[in-house]
Design a protein around this nucleic acid. Structure first.
Length: 604
DNA sequence: GTAGGGTTAG
């Protein structure tokens, strides 16, 4: 029997083959028929093996090929890069030059991507220079890859420099910039870039919207969030699981828990991998993809559980968790992190302990640093710092800074100075790079009236050049954001705001409010301390909100730090005096003040 | 026909 087989038919077979034995047979056929080694047949083989994760077989093909074209090199580099084997990927790239193979646009793109994954800025920049030398400086793929390299390494200035000089930009380039800015704390700039993109009539898709949604989430700009959602519906932009999850997150963090829940309930595939993954899965594997998607993704559930958690609804979070189990979605480590933190924000200590043990014993999930931090937070927030300390001692791994910080803040709130001092020392030993943490340590020592230590902490901060992050609050009125700094006199309504605050202060004191001045610098006059507290940014924002919204309107304030103990107390009084619901989103959670009480039940 | 942009928790 004569075997008639062409290289084209074999390659087609390769693309559709779904298992290793089939590929191996085609591989053998290629050798027998002499096709192997011609054209890019070896590249196709490498891709096929790599697609199924048989990277060693792929490498064998690569090594045994008489000669490799640039496609084969690229395929091999991609294979390593996807596997996370950055060293191999890079060393292959370096070998290309010595073997006389000229990298093409895909090579640079892929190598840049590998550098991005390993956050290897130096190799990335070197690769970018070489790409420019070889005339690929204007290639949009290479360009997008280098933008992302800078973005992921937190170098948005550099990214912007490259972006500004780009001759041609496609949607991915714009998206990379927008997402990069949004994730590097430059949400306003992200929105600006999007506006430019919109002006140039570049049509957006779900991924760019996701970046924008994240920007709205950090800005606390709920009106813009709503309009983006509306825009996506009008433009019929596909909202996959990832985008919908970010909407859930955005609505919850912008104070619209009902809308978050609404988006969540309407999600078609809460528990299925994203549409794009699904579609590319179909393209590669046909219907076999259905075997792989069986209820393995839980991000949207995690997001909604976390949403109820930050709003202090621990019971609802638990009931969602139970629904999630009924739906056969497997909870993962993030699910439990959300659940435990929900318990922590609601003061549900026993439930926290119970589900922590279920997580370990039933679900066999090794508690991570984060889980321990949640538990320590839960216990010490409730004043049970001794139990928290016991839990820390039971850890196999060395407790990290988050855990000591949680313990310390519990000690601060409950006046447990002995354990607190130990925690504070541990925190300082670990050299935190977050000025907020130094403020916490300093506050702790100030409350314990240990002024020498307070001075010591200040000295460390000064030495490391760390500055206290100034607190600010943002309030949205008529779709516009208004930001207030502490003692902010720049606002055009400053005088009126101070009048409102003065009046409130008088009424509050008549109702029994006593300012908690102990956190403020100790060497100041009592009266000065009081005034400083009264000028905290959240108070200015509240007064501004009262001045500019109709009676009974809910006020929503976003703060960049934790609410201070005194403002928390004061806001309770204010909510009663003015008969308004005041919602404060701080860096960790939400506080709903109404009728003189806070939804957090003072577990904050 | 190949490469570049995305996910919740803390």
């Amino acid at each position: 029997m004569r075997l008639v087989v062409g290289s084209k038919s074999l390659k087609t077979l390769l693309i559709t083959s779904k298992d290793e034995p089939t590929i191996a047979k085609i591989h053998a056929l290629m050798i027998l028929t002499g096709i192997f080694g011609h054209g890019n047949s070896n590249a196709k083989l490498i891709q096929s093996y790599a697609r199924l994760g048989h990277i060693e077989s792929a490498r064998q093909v690569f090594d045994k090929s008489p000669q490799c074209g640039v496609d084969a090199w690229n395929a091999m580099i991609i294979a390593y890069s996807r596997r996370g084997a950055m060293f191999e990927a890079l060393s292959l790239y370096h070998r290309m030059a010595s073997e006389g193979v000229r990298p093409d646009s895909s090579t640079y793109t892929v190598v840049l991507k590998a550098c991005t994954r390993s956050l290897d800025l130096r190799s990335g920049e070197e690769t970018w220079r070489q790409a420019v030398d070889q005339g690929y400086g204007d290639d949009v793929f290479v360009g997008a890859a280098v933008l992302n390299l800078y973005a992921k390494c937190g170098k948005m200035d550099e990214a912007m420099r490259v972006f500004d000089k780009m001759g041609r930009r496609d949607l991915v380039c714009w998206t990379t910039m927008i997402t990069g800015l949004a994730q590097n704390g430059q949400a306003r700039e992200a929105v600006d870039i999007y506006r430019q993109m919109h002006k140039k009539r570049v049509e957006g898709d779900g991924v760019v919207m996701l970046g924008l949604i994240q920007a709205c989430t950090t800005l606390g700009h709920s009106k813009m969030g709503l309009s983006i959602h509306g825009y996506m519906i009008r433009k019929d932009i596909i909202m996959d699981v990832i985008v919908q999850t970010s909407l859930v997150d955005m609505y919850a963090k912008n104070g619209h828990l009902e809308l978050a829940s609404c988006v969540f309930r309407r999600m078609l595939y809460k528990n299925v991998i994203s549409w794009s993954a699904l579609i590319s899965g179909f393209a590669q594997n046909g219907f076999a993809v259905f075997d792989q998607i069986s209820f393995r993704d839980s991000i949207s559930w995690n997001a909604i559980i976390a949403s109820y958690g930050i709003h202090g609804s621990g019971e609802e979070a638990l009931s969602l968790f139970l629904q999630m189990r009924e739906t056969n979605v497997k909870p993962d480590h993030a699910t439990f992190a959300s659940l435990l933190s929900a318990f922590s924000h609601s003061g549900l200590v026993e439930k926290g302990r119970y589900w922590f043990s279920i997580m370990v014993n039933e679900y066999k999930i090794q508690p991570s640093e984060k889980h321990y931090a949640c538990m320590v937070d839960l216990l010490s927030r409730a004043g049970r710092v001794e139990e928290a300390q016991e839990l820390i001692e039971s850890m196999i791994t060395e407790p990290g800074i988050a855990i000591w910080v949680a313990l310390l803040s519990g000690c601060l709130n409950h006046g447990k100075f002995l354990i607190g001092e130990m925690a504070a020392k541990k925190v300082l030993e670990l050299n935190p790079d977050d000025p907020g943490i130094y403020s916490l340590v300093s506050n702790f020592f100030a409350t314990a009236r240990r002024w020498d230590e307070v001075a010591e902490v200040r000295k460390i901060m000064k030495k490391t050049g760390m500055k206290k992050v100034p607190g600010y609050s943002v309030m949205e009125v008529n779709g516009k954001l208004h930001a207030f700094l502490m003692e902010d006199k720049s606002h055009h309504q400053y005088e009126e705001i101070m009048q409102v605050l003065g009046k409130l202060d008088y009424e509050m004191k008549a109702m029994g409010y006593v300012p908690k001045t102990e956190f403020v610098l100790h060497n100041l006059e009592e009266e000065v301390k009081e005034r400083m507290l009264c000028n905290h940014s959240e108070r200015l924002a509240i007064a501004f909100g009262l001045l500019n919204t109709g009676p009974g309107t809910r006020l929503l304030i976003t703060k960049n730090l934790r609410v201070c103990g005194d403002c928390h107390e004061a806001t309770k009084f204010i909510s009663k005096i003015v008969n308004r619901e005041i919602v404060v989103r701080d860096v960790k959670r939400f506080h709903h003040f109404k009728d003189g009480v806070c939804s957090c039940g003072d577990y904050w």
